[in-house]
Each structure stands twice: as C-alpha cells, then as structure tokens.
Simulated scan of single mutants.
Amino acid sequence: MPALLPELSPGIDIASASVSLGGRVVLDGLTLRLTEGRIGILGRNGSGKTTLLRLIAGLIAPDGGVVRVDGFDPFKDRKAALSALGILFQNPDHQILFPTVEEELAFGLAQQGLAQSEALAKAHAVLAEEGRGHWAKAPVSTLSQGQRHYLCLLAVLLMQPRTILLDEPLAGLDLPTQGRLARRFAALPQRLVTITHDPATLAGVDRVLWLDEGRIVADGPPGEVIPAFTAAMGRIGELDADADLAG
C-alpha cells in the first residue's frame, strides 16, 4: 500500500455538493474529505463517477455546496487549478488539441506562463528522457491508442500537478500497455484519484469510495469496499441487468 508522500497537497474537500444534468440529479449532497495518496472511486456506469471527477477538476461548478482543492475553488480559480490538478480522460482524443506531439506537450506549459520556445524545449527534453525523442514532430494521428494515452500522461506530468485525476485509465488498452501505465502510475509521487467500474484497477489503493446514483454507498479500505461492491454487482448480474436502464 503506497505511503503518504511529503509532496502531497493538503487535500480535496467537498461539502454538501450537488449536481443536476438534464434535469436529473447526478450527485446528491456529497460531503467528502480526500487526503490519501491513492484513492479509488468505484461504481457502475451512470453512477456519477465522471461528474464527480469533473467537479473536483473544476470543469463544472456544483449547483449547491462547496468544492475546495488545497483550499481554493477549482472552478473559479483556474490559474491555481493549472498547477494543482491534472486530469487524464479515458479517451485521449477528448483531451488532445494539437496536431503534433511537441505542440501537445508544450501547450500546458505555455498556459502556465512559459515562453513557447522554453515550453518546446521542455517537451523535447521529456521525450528524450522517455526514449521517445523521435515523437516530437510526429502527427498525433500516427500514434496508437495506447501511445496517445501515454502522450496525454506526459503532458499532465510536465505541468507538475500535485493531484492527478484518472478517468478509467486502463480501459480499452491492451495488456502490455495496461501494465506499463499501471507501473508508471504506481511510481508517481502525486496524489492519484482514480474512477473506474473495474475493481481490479484499484489494487493497492489506500481508500475506496463506492458511488451509486450520486451517493456514497461505502467508504473505506479496499479490502472491505471492493468485496461488497463485487458481491452487489454479482447479485445484479443474476437479474435482468438492463432492466434498470433509462429508456
């Protein structure tokens, strides 16, 4: 189990936060304090996991309640959010903005105030360190799914956030790529908050929160929460699993 590291920031505080989308309550009065080094948020599709991650990242504001990351409001203070938070989406194509690898890597650094020449130099340096110097001028479109995912991770790491939010980080990747990314995540000093529907993704985390219909069902060590979640999913699977889906 990863120990708390001195680089970790004070934490994420959510108080009575609610979010409604399209007239439906997605998060319902959540109150959480997240300080551990490795945190997993587990739930079925549609449970509100991604909305919670977007709320923490400051990409949306709560309809009610308060969200603070290291003491600031991530929705209102985007400058502070740039240095405090990084987010890795499940689909890298929802994150990548630029046609070449070097431009994609340099963008976040430029947003933090670096001159474009310095941002590009840092991008080239990190690619060289990773043994991928030949990627610099490559069109992003020539990279595989796993390589684009890795590019997004490098772009996040270049900005040196204190907390990284991971949205189903291993979904859709082949086993070798999953292994490489999992080892890289495990070695990072930052706080990692991982959302997933797959309990196997959360092996070794400090704390697991089970989210269902926008509310916390269970919150505790993985050895307690994951078996309860797995058993509940097994019971649902024995029924008509599609019966509760909205039409």
Rank of each mutant, 00 (worst) to 15 (best):
G23Q: 11
H94M: 14
I96D: 05
R44W: 11
S83T: 15
A81E: 05
D28K: 14
V26W: 01
L59V: 13
T35Q: 06
K76G: 15
K76C: 13
T31M: 07
H94Q: 15
A61T: 13
V69T: 01
G37T: 06
A57C: 05
P99N: 13
T35F: 00
I60L: 12
L21F: 13
L85M: 08
R44C: 13
G46Q: 07
V101K: 03
T100A: 03
A17M: 09
Q95I: 06
F98S: 15
T50D: 11
L53G: 07
L82M: 11
T51H: 01
D77L: 07
Q95M: 09
L88R: 04
P99F: 09
R54E: 14
E104K: 05
P74S: 07
D28Q: 09
R68Y: 04
G48H: 05
P99M: 11
D73I: 05
L53W: 00
G65Q: 00
A106R: 08
G71P: 01
T31E: 08
L42F: 07
A84R: 08
D73V: 07
V25T: 15
T31R: 06
G64L: 12
V67S: 01
V66K: 06
G23M: 09
A81G: 04
K49V: 11
R44N: 12
G58Y: 03
G48R: 02
F89N: 06
G37S: 13
G23S: 09
H94S: 15
L53A: 11
A17V: 10
D70K: 00
D70Y: 03
D63V: 10
Q90P: 02
R38A: 04
T31D: 12
F89C: 06
L53R: 00
G65M: 03
E36L: 00
T50M: 05
A80T: 10
T100D: 05
V26I: 15
D93R: 13
A61P: 14
L82I: 05
P74E: 09
I39T: 00
G37L: 05
N91Y: 08
I41K: 00
G40C: 01
L82R: 12
L32A: 01
L32N: 00
T35H: 04
L55F: 00
S83P: 04
D70L: 07
I96P: 10
G46T: 03
G22M: 06
K76M: 15
R33A: 01
F75M: 04
D93I: 08
G29Y: 11
D93A: 10
L32F: 01
K79N: 13
S47D: 05
L97F: 09
